[in-house]
């Protein structure tokens, strides 16, 4: 089976499942987790884009021939973008969790329909 295609399909599933959780689940922590799943799906899409059939990891070892290495290595750009995006996701997550802590203290519940109701 084509490994890259399988990986793309998995990424699509992650994004769609995350969106489902975000739109349809009422629990605020679950919503935050769903957002994190969407992000991971996007990250997986990016990483899979760098995949090369039978390629090397993008670390050059002096034992390899440079020509062979450079034509066969996985693309480093998507991996770098993913590294950046992971930190972005972590920081967003931190603030949302901090806000959830405060609201749980106030309402003693995690239901979005109660915490973020109309005011």
């Amino acid at each position: 089976m084509d490994l890259q295609l399988a990986s793309f399909i998995a990424a699509g599933v992650l994004v769609v499942v995350g969106l489902y959780g975000f739109f349809f689940v009422d629990n605020i922590i679950k919503k935050v987790i769903a957002l994190s799943i969407i992000e991971n799906g996007v990250n997986l899409t990016l990483v899979s884009m760098g995949y090369r059939e039978g390629g090397y990891a993008p670390i050059y070892l002096p034992t390899l021939k440079f020509q062979l290495f450079s034509t066969n290595m996985a693309y480093p750009l998507p991996q770098a973008l993913v590294l950046t995006n992971i930190v972005i996701g972590a920081s967003m997550l931190a603030i949302m969790l901090a806000l959830s802590v405060v609201f749980y203290k106030k309402y003693k519940t995690l239901k979005t329909s109660i915490i973020l109701k109309e005011d």
Partner: peptide
């Protein structure tokens, strides 16, 4: 990116 050598770790080079 793959054909230019800066440092052995290419991901760090891009970053």
């Amino acid at each position: 990116y793959t054909s230019t050598y800066i440092i052995p770790n290419y991901v760090t080079a891009v970053l």
